[in-house]
Design a protein around this nucleic acid. Structure first.
Lengths: 150, 150
DNA sequence: CTAACCTTTCCCATCGTTGGAAGGTCAAGG
DNA sequence: CCTTGACCTTCCAACGATGGGAAAGGTTAG
């Protein structure tokens, strides 16, 4: 199976398949005489696993953990559960900070006349935050990102 | 005022101040004879504006829009309101997809014995998604990111 | 044989941010 | 005066995950 077919079958772009190989997330693919990479159905299986985990917001580093547990037949489901739970906690942190942002912005928008007068409470707040206490813990907001899927 | 003092006063790192200048988000700073950048209190004011907007999850591109409205004395608050509302909609989209992820993961974790047996429903689902319908609209998930704040 | 398509590797860009190296400036103290 | 340390300058690189594209070669149907 060529990379293009593996890509279609797994939903992972050919570019990303090569990238995952290059960074060691997946083992180096077999090569045909032509030099083309050759994928087996079980490779596609693994790629779909990765794709699915990405859709669930796991980082590649986390997927690495999951993959090694997946490959390890004596894996303990407790380990997987632990990783999943930690990931849920991360997601919830992100949700909370996003909700805080929308709440703040929503308040500002509600206060905004939205007409053609130049007095805008949104800009005013950006200049001089009203509550002084800005978004609760900006330090914990970042680090996690959502994936780029244009 | 040196860049370090402007940084402390605004909460924007010196690195980022230079980056914002370089990319044209803020105008080129005045220079002292020594070559050091020289910042006025109103520059610091602008930097705090930027900082606050980043905390609210605006992208630099969006901040560019906000800044030009801010600088434009005849700005219409309707324009600012429009930008803020669009941003809220974006944030809500992200929240929804994150909530979908946690819901799916939560279900899996609940089904997981969490003991030392190798049968793990989480891994099983990653292999063969149960609902087949994976996360609702993964295509709309990405593109927006949270900022990197280690 | 040729056209159309696939694959290969390689480099570049994105976005926001941090890190470091190599070198210039400034202020205080010996 | 000179040294020390804190600061500043520019430039270059990296992160993570992904896409874009070029140049070169393989494969396949007509």
């Amino acid at each position: 199976m060529n990379i293009g077919q593996a890509s279609k079958a797994s939903g992972v772009s050919a570019k990303m398949i090569r990238y995952y190989e290059q960074t060691g997330l997946i083992p180096k693919a077999d090569r045909k005489d032509s030099g083309y990479r050759d994928y087996s159905p079980s490779d596609v299986h693994m790629l779909r696993f990765i794709r699915r985990a990405r859709d669930l917001g796991f980082s590649v580093a986390e997927i690495n953990e999951l993959l090694s547990l997946w490959r390890d037949k004596s894996r303990q489901s407790a380990d997987v559960k632990r990783i999943a739970q930690a990931h849920i906690a991360q997601l919830q942190e992100r949700i909370e900070s996003l909700e805080q942002m929308t709440a703040t912005l929503g308040t500002l928008v509600d206060c905004c006349a939205g007409d053609d007068r130049p007095d805008c409470p949104i800009l005013a707040d950006l200049e001089e935050p009203s509550g002084e206490q800005d978004v609760p813990s900006p330090a914990t907001v970042g680090t996690g990102r959502l994936r780029h899927r244009p």
